[in-house]
């Protein structure tokens, strides 16, 4: 065996091949690393300014007469964005409370609630909205555009954005009481 080795031509890996191999390896590591970083970020942190987005509302829902709502239209108001889905059982626990608190604050004009229906079927979503008598603006996010922006980790999740468009508080999971929502709102209102 050793003899065969001795006679074998000692050729190294050509430089071009080395360059390709290392590039591929580094590329793979970068790809995986970036993805890992993205996965580990979790949802958007309080203190972040939320970029603008537009949500098309369900038929029958509107905001100031329009069937679309943009975050930029809501500057100067506290915005409560609630992610939910009709198939989500814990969402039902807080649906009544959300509507209740909304009803209390709606007239002040200082707060806007916005329901975002995460990957859902429209007929079932309507049934859900009707069941809980929800009348604050609601729109579907079937393609997860908005949820991806917030990097939601599940439903329900609620985001409180202040008058300057900066995220102040994130609630993961259902609210236990209406007071919990009120307290958070009162902290943010002048």
């Amino acid at each position: 065996m050793t003899e065969i080795n001795a006679t074998a031509p000692k050729r190294g890996v050509p430089l071009w091949a080395q360059v390709i191999i290392w590039t591929l390896l580094v590329g793979l590591l970068v790809l995986v690393g970036v993805t890992l970083n993205k996965r580990q970020q979790g949802s958007v942190r309080p203190g972040t300014e939320i970029p603008d987005f537009t949500l098309t509302l369900f038929d029958g829902y509107q905001y100031e007469g329009r069937s679309k709502i943009s975050l930029s239209d809501l500057r100067g108001k506290v915005v409560v964005i609630n992610f939910w889905a009709s198939w989500c059982k814990p969402c039902e626990q807080e649906a009544g409370e959300l509507q209740q608190v909304w009803a209390e604050y709606a007239d002040s004009g200082e707060v806007v609630f916005l329901g975002v229906d995460y990957v859902d079927t429209e007929p079932e979503a309507r049934v859900y909205l009707q069941k809980f008598g929800i009348d604050f603006p609601n729109g579907p996010d079937m393609g997860t555009k908005v949820s991806q922006m917030f990097r939601t980790t599940g439903v329900p999740e609620t985001y409180f954005i202040d008058q300057n468009g900066v995220l102040q508080y994130v609630k993961v999971g259902p609210f236990v009481s209406a007071d919990e929502i009120r307290n958070q709102l009162d902290k943010m209102l002048p």
Partner: peptide, 13 residues
């Protein structure tokens, strides 16, 4: 990978 490239010539048969 580095080790493999380093020893590549010796492994030639």
């Amino acid at each position: 990978l580095a080790l493999l490239i380093w020893r590549w010539p010796e492994l030639n048969s």
